[in-house]
């Protein structure tokens, strides 16, 4: 394929919005945060497209997405912390019904919980690889790390997940 022509903002939103939402959701486990991030990213893409020169579009888009995500995380750190809704989970809770357990496995809630327990740089690498579907080179470009580091983060991230899921 040759150089991609610059896509319109609407095209970016339509073609990538859902992946951006899933990226943010899997990193945070929170639909409201994911929604805010998509809005923020689309705003930045709209501004950024004016100066975009054809290159690896995915690398460019995911670098913006990642930076928006990290900015949001930094902003939240400065605010007084709000307890997460699942902080008091398990207090006097009876064991869930078997059909609830099955539904939870089907929806991947166990995988989502495990994802949230591994350190950010590994979580980010496996999400970009296995959820977003980027190649190692695109991940290296988006995150700004060498490709060897991408490979080791993905591998270690998967190994940590496997430990947590077993």
């Amino acid at each position: 394929m040759g150089e991609d022509p610059t896509p319109s903002w609407e095209e970016v939103a339509r073609h990538h919005g859902r992946k951006i939402y899933n990226f943010a959701y899997r990193l945070t486990g929170n639909p409201d945060d994911a929604r805010d991030l998509v809005q923020d990213v689309l705003l930045r893409v709209r501004r950024g497209l004016e100066s975009y020169t054809p290159q690896s579009f995915d690398g460019w888009l995911w670098r913006i997405t990642r930076n928006a995500f990290l900015d949001e995380v930094r902003r939240r750190k400065r605010r007084p912390s709000v307890p997460l809704p699942d902080d008091d989970r398990g207090l006097g809770e009876s064991s869930p019904a078997p059909e609830d357990v099955l539904a939870s496995i089907r929806l991947g809630e166990d995988v989502q919980r495990a994802l949230l327990q591994i350190p950010f740089e590994f979580r980010e690498a496996v999400v970009l690889c296995d959820i977003v579907g980027l190649a190692y080179e695109e991940i290296a470009e988006a995150v700004g790390i060498p490709i060897g580091t991408v490979r080791s983060r993905i591998h270690r991230g998967r190994a940590m997940l496997r430990e947590l899921l077993s």
């Binding site: 859902r18 998509v38 296995d130 496997r162």
Partner: peptide
Amino acid sequence: RVESARGALRRLPMLETPPGLIPG
């Protein structure tokens, strides 16, 4: 082991974006 974790991630459902979030 890594194949099973990779499979678990790739089998996660692709979630729909909330209504009204994506223009058009």
